[in-house]
Design a protein around this nucleic acid. Structure first.
Length: 563
RNA sequence: UGUCCUGUGGUGUAAUUGGCAACACGCCUGACUCUGGAUCAGGAAAGUGAAGGUUCGAGCCCUUCCAGGACAACCA
């Protein structure tokens, strides 16, 4: 009964139903053991987050375990840098593999032994033909392949050649080890698939010990078996590999235990590119500042952008697990952060595009501390003091000299509230020679101290503001979608670099934030009231603070404007 | 001229395994508000890829068809 799903468990999906059914039938002694098997050849992205939540989440839900396993069978592409970043990202997302950190390379010896065993059983052979000939003989999806002339070599000769391959006596590509299955199979993957190839390269863990490395199809299922995995969850493109996965596992199995591969659809997001290759290209060609550029869909990019682990986990939960291939609206991701940050983020006032306001009837040199609520959604976060002075900054967009009917912010003659401070009325607009507004002259009502209205007078708008003298000057980076097209997969023949949004990054150099943010730690979250959620950038210093806009607040006024 | 997989509002996911198609995002109204945020109330939007069949009754079962995707790396 301890394998039963916890009460209050969230959503279910077809994989959980399979798991529950396996549990009911008593498969594999009612053990549930999953694994997350990244190849360390790039940084993790939001698509991996889906897999991570599924792998670790399923184990957690059914009282099982989940391993972290690096699928490091190709030394020419893999690197320790990626091994490190992947662990950091999985941990940051909130998952724990305890002492179960594994590498496919842990099993290189066992894999070799097993390959030898298959040769002895007459189920594997060395093929001396070059890659293009083997490829040619494989046929096409609609036409069967033909057998290699080396297919029926003697076991002794195969053993001897395999030994030489291992000993490094052959150059790259000289020969390969193939499983002997069925060259006429309608499934291309069963047409004598490669098991080992020669790669003379230094491996990040085994160094120069090996000159042959196992292929994915051979290594993956066997590693699952060695680790006692029961449910091997992967994406749809491996569906057609499943018969081969089962073939290798059945050859190896010595008991009733069997790992089982189940496929689900990968995550696609609108205006987002998820291919590792292209993300690598963005980094290498310096089209972005790095893997953690806040515009990147990588976990580290999202983290630097200000996304929280909770928001990503909730997002994945909402997306669900199925086998249908679709594309999720980024708006759902954005909704997930807003939902989380609304409940948790410290409120603060910050002006991104400042225009000066002088309160002409307010004493020069006076500084009043106004009490402000830190988070109206969470009273326990308390209040803070915000300095108010004669000269202030407000948002340029909050003033219009000739306001349209539905604009109820500041305009000549209009009265608005400065949040937590006073009601002010604009009396005069100062402009430079070019006609640009440089300053607004206003008067305040002392009776409205704190932003209250003792006489019950209503104002239609409340504006955020920052003292022109008591503030933190900061740089603020605004991000927009990296791609201009909603679904890049519809433009397969277009170079993705031509689809990049040239305005994906806007840097605002002189922004003013209330003093509260001074010294805030990198990656801390704030809501700049009325503007959005912001996060202290990792490059931020006390001398020069830098903020990233995670996501804007919903803005019904802006929406009306666009109509 | 193959094998495997997938078709439910704009998007994503559900439907007690045959019983009035639900939820979320997005969109639109309105209320409230010291954030044009949040919250609250309401609305538009699919008849389930198509056609047949079984049944009192089909998104769920059967048949045929259509559309889309995956598979021919010494990548994973």
């Amino acid at each position: 009964m301890n394998n039963a799903p916890e009460s209050g468990a969230k959503t279910t999906n077809f994989i959980h139903q399979i798991v529950e059914n396996d549990l009911m039938e008593g498969r594999n002694n009612k053990r549930i053991h999953t694994r997350f098997p990244p190849e360390p050849n790039g940084y993790l992205h939001i698509g991996h987050a889906k897999a991570i939540c599924l792998d670790f989440g399923t184990a957690e839900k059914y009282g099982g375990k989940c391993n972290l396993r690096f699928d490091d069978t190709n030394p020419s592409k893999e690197d320790q840098e990626y091994v490190d970043s992947i662990q950091e990202d999985v941990r940051w997302l909130g998952f724990d593999w305890e002492d179960r950190l594994y590498y496919a390379s842990d099993n290189f010896d066992k894999l070799y032994e097993f390959a030898v065993e298959l040769i002895k059983r007459g189920k594997a052979y060395i093929d001396d033909q070059p890659a293009d000939v083997i490829s040619e003989q494989r046929g096409t999806p609609t036409r069967p392949g033909i057998e290699s002339p080396y297919r029926n070599r003697s076991v002794e000769e195969n053993l001897m050649l395999f030994e030489k391959m291992k000993a490094g006596e052959f150059p790259n590509g000289h020969c390969v080890l193939r499983a002997k299955i069925d060259m006429a199979s309608p499934n291309m993957h069963m047409r004598d698939p490669l098991m080992y190839r020669i790669i003379h390269a230094e491996h990040h863990r085994t160094g120069n010990k090996w000159s042959i490395y196992p292929m994915y199809d051979f290594a993956h299922g066997e590693c699952d078996y060695f680790e006692g995995i029961t449910h091997s969850l992967c994406t749809l493109e491996f569906e057609i590999h499943r018969p081969l996965y089962d073939w290798f596992v059945n050859e190896l199995a010595t008991s009733e235990y069997r790992p089982r591969q189940i496929e689900f659809s990968r995550l696609n997001l609108t205006y987002t590119m998820m291919s590792k290759r292209k993300l690598l290209q963005l980094v290498e060609e310096k089209l972005v500042s790095g893997w953690d550029d806040p515009r990147m869909p990588t976990i580290c990019g999202l983290r630097r952008r200000g996304y929280t682990p909770e928001s990503i986990r909730n997002f994945v939960e909402k997306v669900g697990i199925t086998k249908t291939e679709g594309i999720i609206d980024v708006a759902l991701l954005e909704h997930s952060v807003r939902e989380d940050l609304n409940k948790t983020a410290q409120r603060v006032m910050g002006v991104l595009n400042p225009i000066k306001v002088v309160i002409t009837n307010y004493p020069e040199g006076k500084v009043e501390m106004m009490e402000a609520i830190n988070n109206p959604e969470d009273e326990s976060m308390g209040t803070r003091q915000v300095p108010f002075t004669r000269e202030l900054y407000i948002e340029r967009e909050d003033f219009m000299e000739e306001p349209p009917k539905k604009f109820f912010r500041l305009s000549p003659g209009a009265e608005v509230r400065l949040r937590y401070a006073y009601f002010i009325t604009c009396n005069e607009v100062i402009k430079d020679e070019q006609g640009n507004i440089t300053e607004l002259r206003c008067t305040y009502d002392p009776a409205s101290y704190g932003g209250n209205s003792p006489d019950g007078r209503k104002v239609k708008a409340t504006l955020h503001w920052v003292s022109a003298t008591e503030n933190v000057e900061a740089e603020i980076r605004l991000y927009d979608r990296l791609l201009m097209v909603q679904d890049p997969s519809e433009y397969k023949d277009v170079d993705f670099r031509d689809m990049l949004n040239p305005e994906s990054l806007k840097v605002l150099k002189k922004c003013y934030i209330e003093p509260f943010v001074y010294n805030a730690k990198p990656l801390s979250h704030f809501q700049f009231e009325r503007m959005g959620y912001f996060c202290v950038d990792t490059s931020s210093t006390t001398e020069k603070m830098v903020f990233n806009r995670t996501v804007s607040l919903k803005d019904t006024w802006a929406k009306q404007q666009n109509q």
